[in-house]
């Protein structure tokens, strides 16, 4: 079985966000694998290394221009066997999901697709679900544990107010979140060397349409100063919350 991990290339989560002409200013930005996708890749690697699991190959797929290749190489250094870059500027979740599906729909072997639940840049919470609908396969979202036995997967998914264990046949799209792997893997020196030689296929996409657009970016409004309460009179806080902030 092969696992496809969909990767987004996003600004490092500590990036100080700047907007120039109401557009995201990319100068000086460090790019990383979207945190949830990094966890998905880590879990995919664990499954591949587990001799009892049927997973034999891990492929990462990214929609991005040439600038996303360092991030893809990092995924190869973490351990993915090969990578695919769909050569397009990611426009909105819908077009990204469509581009991924155009590539993935041709794969006929036994497989599973992993995506992260959201991307840390535009917070769309959408690509995984959209992809599954384009591919017309089932999806499980909010996945925090994944195991594979034969042709089916055992999955834990978060529901509002609990956790469900779900069994589902492959292929399907697992949309993963925190918990799927403990810590994201960091590439080792050997992995970095090997990554240079691993195959990175570049695919030219067909034409596509975005159906939403992001306009007029702005920074959040500054917050008023924090009101300090003397630790000796910590009790005063409760009165303030009650009478001033009116939240109790």
């Amino acid at each position: 079985m092969k696992i496809f991990v969909c990767l987004a290339n996003v600004p490092d989560t500590t990036t100080k966000i700047k907007f120039t002409d109401q557009k995201f200013d990319e100068t000086g930005v460090q790019w990383v694998i979207n945190p949830w996708d990094e966890l998905a890749l880590t879990r995919a690697m664990e499954l591949k290394e587990d001799t009892e699991s049927p997973v034999k190959e891990v492929t990462v797929v990214t929609v991005g221009t040439l600038g996303s290749e360092p991030t893809i190489r990092k995924a190869l250094a973490i351990g993915a066997d090969n990578a695919v870059r769909i050569d397009a500027e990611p426009e909105d979740s819908y077009s990204v999901a469509w581009l991924l599906s155009e590539y993935l729909k041709n794969y006929e072997g036994d497989h599973l697709v992993l995506t992260g639940i959201e991307s840390s840049d535009y917070n769309g919470f959408a690509v995984g679900g959209m992809l599954s609908e384009f591919l017309n396969v089932p999806s499980v979202s909010g996945v925090s544990a994944l195991d594979i036995e034969g042709d089916h997967a055992k999955v834990s998914r978060e529901i509002d107010g609990g956790l469900e264990q779900v069994v589902i046949k492959t292929p399907f799209v697992a949309i993963v979140q925190k918990g799927i792997a403990k810590e994201p893997r960091i590439p080792a020196m050997r992995g970095i060397m090997m990554a240079r030689k691993k195959p990175l296929e570049v695919v030219s996409p067909g034409s596509f349409d975005n159906i939403t657009e992001m306009l007029d970016f702005e920074l959040p409004k500054a917050k008023p100063q924090c009101k300090m309460i003397d630790p000796e009179n910590a009790k005063d806080l409760i009165g303030l919350l009650q009478n001033e902030a009116k939240v109790l």
Binding site: Y94, I117, S141, E158, D160
Partner: peptide, 24 residues
């Protein structure tokens, strides 16, 4: 709702209905 169920269904519906999605 922007909760587990909403996050699971809204993107699929967006494709099925060809309706642009605004999350959260």
């Amino acid at each position: 709702a922007h909760n587990n169920t909403g996050k699971a269904l809204a993107p699929r519906l967006s494709v099925r209905l060809k309706a642009g999605l605004v999350s959260a």
